[in-house]
């Protein structure tokens, strides 16, 4: 159907490297990402400071903002109760994907 808007064409840059993840936790609330949201992430992009990224830490996927701080990279939450995590302090830690979109299903009040 020409002219009909496709959501996946809008949200997915490259099908092969795109993965969907389910968000669990509140640490990114102030960045607009809530518990239960669907996250569209891309593994094929070079992560840059300032972006929200998925990191592999201690065998778990962790969602935080990548920040360059005093010449070192760290992961910052968007919530006052969560202190920043220095990437150097984790054995084998690595940035796994860049988060691109959030999909939230609205609930009736």
């Amino acid at each position: 159907m020409p002219g009909s808007a496709s959501l996946s064409a809008q949200l997915i840059r490259c099908h092969a490297s795109t993965v969907l993840l389910r968000v669990s936790g509140e640490s990114m609330q102030a960045a607009g990402i809530d518990h239960g949201d669907l996250l569209i992430v891309d593994r094929g992009l070079e992560p840059r400071p300032g972006q929200i990224v998925v990191a592999c830490l201690d065998g778990c996927f962790t969602l935080k903002r990548l920040v360059a701080h005093q010449g070192r990279l760290r992961l910052e939450a968007a919530h006052p109760a969560y202190p920043p995590l220095e990437l150097d302090c984790f054995d084998g830690a690595r940035i796994w994907a860049v988060a691109l979109h959030v999909v939230r299903t609205l609930k009736a009040p």
């Binding site: 993965v19 969907l20 993840l21 389910r22 968000v23 669990s24 936790g25 509140e26 640490s27 990114m28 990402i33 518990h35 669907l38 996250l39 992430v41 998925v54 778990c60 996927f61 962790t62 969602l63 935080k64 939450a77």
Partner: peptide, 13 residues
């Protein structure tokens, strides 16, 4: 993990 929405992996925030 990649084919069904109710089985996708979890990311901790």
């Amino acid at each position: 993990a990649t084919t069904r929405l109710d089985a996708i992996p979890v990311v901790r925030a």
